[in-house]
Design a protein around this nucleic acid. Structure first.
Length: 107
DNA sequence: TTGTGTTTTACGACCTC
DNA sequence: GAGGTCGTAAAACACAA
Protein backbone atom coordinates (compact mmCIF):
# COMPACT_ATOMS: atom_id res chain seq x y z
CA UNK A 1 0.00 0.00 0.00
CA UNK A 2 1.48 3.40 -0.90
CA UNK A 3 1.52 6.46 1.31
CA UNK A 4 -1.39 8.04 -0.47
CA UNK A 5 -3.56 5.00 0.08
CA UNK A 6 -2.47 4.60 3.69
CA UNK A 7 -3.50 8.20 4.34
CA UNK A 8 -6.79 8.14 2.50
CA UNK A 9 -7.95 4.55 2.97
CA UNK A 10 -11.42 4.44 4.49
CA UNK A 11 -11.12 2.98 7.95
CA UNK A 12 -14.16 2.08 10.03
CA UNK A 13 -14.29 3.36 13.56
CA UNK A 14 -14.52 0.75 16.30
CA UNK A 15 -17.79 0.33 18.25
CA UNK A 16 -16.16 2.01 21.25
CA UNK A 17 -15.07 4.98 19.18
CA UNK A 18 -18.56 5.28 17.75
CA UNK A 19 -20.07 5.11 21.24
CA UNK A 20 -17.92 7.99 22.40
CA UNK A 21 -18.81 10.06 19.34
CA UNK A 22 -22.53 9.29 19.75
CA UNK A 23 -22.42 10.38 23.38
CA UNK A 24 -20.69 13.62 22.46
CA UNK A 25 -23.05 14.18 19.52
CA UNK A 26 -26.14 13.65 21.67
CA UNK A 27 -24.87 16.29 24.04
CA UNK A 28 -24.28 18.77 21.21
CA UNK A 29 -24.57 18.00 17.51
CA UNK A 30 -22.28 20.89 16.57
CA UNK A 31 -18.56 20.55 17.08
CA UNK A 32 -16.56 23.40 18.55
CA UNK A 33 -12.79 23.37 17.89
CA UNK A 34 -11.86 22.46 21.48
CA UNK A 35 -14.23 19.52 21.51
CA UNK A 36 -12.92 18.41 18.13
CA UNK A 37 -9.28 18.27 19.31
CA UNK A 38 -10.31 16.67 22.60
CA UNK A 39 -12.26 13.92 20.82
CA UNK A 40 -9.46 13.41 18.30
CA UNK A 41 -7.00 12.78 21.15
CA UNK A 42 -9.43 10.50 23.00
CA UNK A 43 -10.17 8.50 19.87
CA UNK A 44 -6.65 8.52 18.45
CA UNK A 45 -7.83 9.79 15.07
CA UNK A 46 -7.16 13.02 13.15
CA UNK A 47 -9.42 15.99 14.05
CA UNK A 48 -10.53 16.03 10.41
CA UNK A 49 -12.01 12.55 10.84
CA UNK A 50 -13.98 13.71 13.88
CA UNK A 51 -15.34 16.66 11.89
CA UNK A 52 -16.34 14.41 9.00
CA UNK A 53 -18.04 11.97 11.35
CA UNK A 54 -20.11 14.82 12.78
CA UNK A 55 -21.04 16.01 9.29
CA UNK A 56 -22.15 12.55 8.25
CA UNK A 57 -24.00 11.99 11.51
CA UNK A 58 -25.94 15.22 11.08
CA UNK A 59 -26.86 14.16 7.56
CA UNK A 60 -28.03 10.73 8.78
CA UNK A 61 -30.13 12.31 11.53
CA UNK A 62 -31.70 14.68 9.04
CA UNK A 63 -32.54 11.82 6.69
CA UNK A 64 -34.12 9.81 9.49
CA UNK A 65 -36.15 12.80 10.58
CA UNK A 66 -37.34 13.42 7.00
CA UNK A 67 -38.30 9.78 6.72
CA UNK A 68 -40.32 9.99 9.94
CA UNK A 69 -42.06 13.16 8.73
CA UNK A 70 -42.81 11.51 5.41
CA UNK A 71 -44.43 8.49 7.10
CA UNK A 72 -46.52 10.75 9.33
CA UNK A 73 -47.71 12.72 6.32
CA UNK A 74 -48.56 9.50 4.52
CA UNK A 75 -50.77 8.39 7.42
CA UNK A 76 -52.45 11.80 7.50
CA UNK A 77 -53.04 11.64 3.75
CA UNK A 78 -54.60 8.17 4.02
CA UNK A 79 -56.87 9.38 6.81
CA UNK A 80 -57.90 12.44 4.82
CA UNK A 81 -58.61 10.37 1.70
CA UNK A 82 -60.85 7.96 3.60
CA UNK A 83 -62.60 10.82 5.37
CA UNK A 84 -63.20 12.44 2.00
CA UNK A 85 -64.67 9.19 0.67
CA UNK A 86 -67.05 8.99 3.64
CA UNK A 87 -68.16 12.58 3.09
CA UNK A 88 -68.84 11.88 -0.59
CA UNK A 89 -70.97 8.89 0.35
CA UNK A 90 -72.86 11.06 2.79
CA UNK A 91 -73.46 13.71 0.11
CA UNK A 92 -74.84 11.04 -2.25
CA UNK A 93 -77.07 9.65 0.48
CA UNK A 94 -78.44 13.12 1.28
CA UNK A 95 -79.01 13.89 -2.41
CA UNK A 96 -80.94 10.66 -2.73
CA UNK A 97 -83.00 11.47 0.36
CA UNK A 98 -83.73 14.94 -0.97
CA UNK A 99 -84.91 13.58 -4.29
CA UNK A 100 -87.60 11.60 -2.50
CA UNK A 101 -89.05 14.62 -0.67
CA UNK A 102 -92.23 15.96 -2.37
CA UNK A 103 -91.72 19.34 -4.01
CA UNK A 104 -93.94 22.33 -3.18
CA UNK A 105 -94.52 25.35 -5.41
CA UNK A 106 -93.55 28.47 -3.55
CA UNK A 107 -95.35 31.79 -3.91
C1' DT B 1 -17.54 -17.53 -3.21
C1' DT B 2 -19.79 -13.90 -5.31
C1' DG B 3 -23.24 -10.70 -6.77
C1' DT B 4 -25.96 -7.18 -4.85
C1' DG B 5 -27.96 -3.92 -1.74
C1' DT B 6 -26.99 -1.00 2.32
C1' DT B 7 -24.14 1.70 5.41
C1' DT B 8 -20.18 4.41 6.47
C1' DT B 9 -16.29 7.24 5.35
C1' DA B 10 -14.28 10.94 2.88
C1' DC B 11 -14.22 14.76 -0.09
C1' DG B 12 -15.33 18.72 -3.37
C1' DA B 13 -18.52 22.40 -4.41
C1' DC B 14 -21.12 25.71 -2.75
C1' DC B 15 -23.40 28.57 1.06
C1' DT B 16 -23.77 31.26 5.40
C1' DC B 17 -22.30 33.87 9.08
C1' DG C 1 -11.99 32.28 6.22
C1' DA C 2 -14.07 28.63 9.21
C1' DG C 3 -17.39 25.59 9.41
C1' DG C 4 -21.94 24.31 7.69
C1' DT C 5 -24.91 21.43 4.10
C1' DC C 6 -25.50 18.72 -0.09
C1' DG C 7 -24.36 15.34 -3.42
C1' DT C 8 -21.60 11.64 -4.50
C1' DA C 9 -17.71 8.08 -4.99
C1' DA C 10 -15.85 4.32 -3.02
C1' DA C 11 -14.70 1.20 0.78
C1' DA C 12 -16.68 -1.79 4.18
C1' DC C 13 -20.14 -4.69 5.46
C1' DA C 14 -24.37 -7.92 5.41
C1' DC C 15 -26.43 -11.61 3.42
C1' DA C 16 -29.08 -14.49 0.09
C1' DA C 17 -28.25 -17.66 -3.59
Amino acid sequence: MDSFQSQTRKKRLTPNQVRLLETSFNFNNKLDPDRKSQLAVQLGVPPRQVAIWYQNKRAREKNQSLETDYKMLQVRLENTVSHNARLKEEVERLKDELSKVPRFELG
